[in-house]
Design a protein around this nucleic acid. Structure first.
Length: 401
DNA sequence: AAGGCGGGGAA
DNA sequence: TTCCCAGCCTT
């Protein structure tokens, strides 16, 4: 069996299989390059089932390049709330604005032009070019690398950039004449539904007869991929600050800095506890933690005042929760706090949000605080971990039992 | 080349 | 629990 024969068999059978087995996905009902692009960005590191509702809402809210380009960033971030990797949303809008101003609103159809857009890497460029324009460009993602690793018995570490380059070369050779869009999608579809990471469904695979990985009994060990480092744990004390008087029923939130983790998202104020306070905070309500809670509450109060001129009086622990990022694990304890104002020099939080100057760090950007209630729910984007806390926390004005 | 950057579903 | 998902960007 020659190598070329195995390749032709692979492409032919895969394409035939796709034509009868492809899922009916929203973005497959359109050839609009803008819609394809939106879907591809949302699908980066995110599952199809998760993306579908976001996709519908997003194209309804921003139906054209122009609509997204002209929208306030706050609104775009809100539409992305819960999807994660929020730089995708900011990069997408920046790129769409570039398309509006430099490309007359038309999504570029050349590799060079589309690759110059923010957030458009090798995969997304190939996906849009092939699916929307049927250009013979490879679109190599995790699915494709897994499928090719198994079928061609490639033991290269797919975590290495050099491996992806090789896969792209191979994938491009496999594209049947005039069928780039369908073939690339077929490759990913096979990886998503048949050639799965664990226990692949080889018996229903359209190319199992010549799959070198299966014939070698190595399908389960492929692809080779170096393990990621485990996330580093961080203990954090969160301030659940209830409003009083005209702000009754609301909770104080702040906006994160414009760069870095969860950039420009809103959240409950929180501080990382120093190592000396990290060890003991573990189980809410346990007597043994009373001292640790007292120390954590004191640290929380002092830190918020020093950093933001925010005066609070922590009252008691409310709940514990964890949130794991790719590289950090937040172990959080939420403390109910009484609001006691801002120090002189730090503007009070108002309906429109007030700037609170930071006592330390002359070059740091100012932090905006505001009272978050029912009316603000639709406007401000919060990471899921804080949405969960707010949902579980009892209403601020409800009597405690 | 390595690390930052979310969140959730599947096994 | 562990893995990894239709990846990209910065250093």
């Amino acid at each position: 069996m020659g190598a070329n024969e195995a390749k032709l068999y692979f492409s032919t059978e895969l394409l035939n299989w796709y034509n009868t087995h492809k899922r009916d996905l929203p973005w497959r009902r359109s050839r609009n390059p803008y819609y394809i692009w939106i879907s591809e960005v949302m699908l980066q590191q995110t599952r199809v089932e998760t993306v579908i509702p976001y996709y519908h809402r997003f194209i309804e809210q921003f139906p054209t390049v122009e609509a997204l380009a002209d929208a306030p960033e706050e609104q775009v971030l809100k539409a992305w709330e819960g999807l994660g990797y929020y730089s995708r949303a900011r990069n997408l809008q920046a790129a769409v604005r570039e398309v509006k101003t430099s490309y007359g609103g038309q999504v570029p159809d050349s590799k060079e032009d589309i690759s110059s857009l923010k957030g458009v890497g090798p995969y997304t460029a190939g996906a849009v070019l092939s699916i929307a324009y049927n250009k013979p460009e490879p679109a190599v993602d995790g699915n494709v690398m897994r499928v090719l690793s198994r079928y061609f018995l490639l033991r290269d570490d797919i975590a290495k950039p050099s491996t992806r380059i090789g896969m792209e070369k191979l994938a491009k050779e496999l594209i049947p004449e005039g069928k780039a869009g369908d073939f690339n999608q077929a490759l990913m579809e096979l990886g998503a539904t048949v050639c799965t990471p664990k226990s692949p469904h080889c018996l229903t695979c359209p190319v199992m007869e010549l799959c070198a990985g299966r014939l070698e009994g190595a399908a389960d060990e492929l692809p080779v991929k170096t393990k990621a480092k485990p996330p580093r744990p961080e203990r954090r004390a969160v301030a659940y600050i209830e409003g009083a008087g005209t702000e009754s029923g609301r909770v104080l939130i702040r906006q994160r800095p414009k760069e870095g983790l969860l950039a420009r998202m809103w959240e409950l104020p929180h501080v990382q506890l120093p190592e000396t306070l990290q060890a003991s905070a573990g189980r809410a309500g346990a007597d043994a933690d009373a001292g640790a809670d007292a120390a954590a509450m004191r640290f929380l109060r002092e830190k918020l005042e020093a950093e933001y001129g925010l005066l609070v009086e922590p009252v008691e622990p409310m709940m514990d929760t964890e949130h794991t990022f790719s590289h950090i694990e937040w172990r959080m304890r939420v403390y109910r706090c009484r609001f006691a104002g801002f120090t002189e020099g730090a503007a009070a939080a108002g309906d429109r949000g007030g700037d609170a100057g930071q006592a330390s760090g002359e070059q740091q950007e100012k932090t905006t605080f505001l009272w978050f209630g029912e009316e603000e729910l639709r406007q401000y984007a919060l990471p899921n971990v804080f949405v969960r806390i707010l949902q579980q926390a009892p209403p601020a004005d409800s009597p405690k039992s």
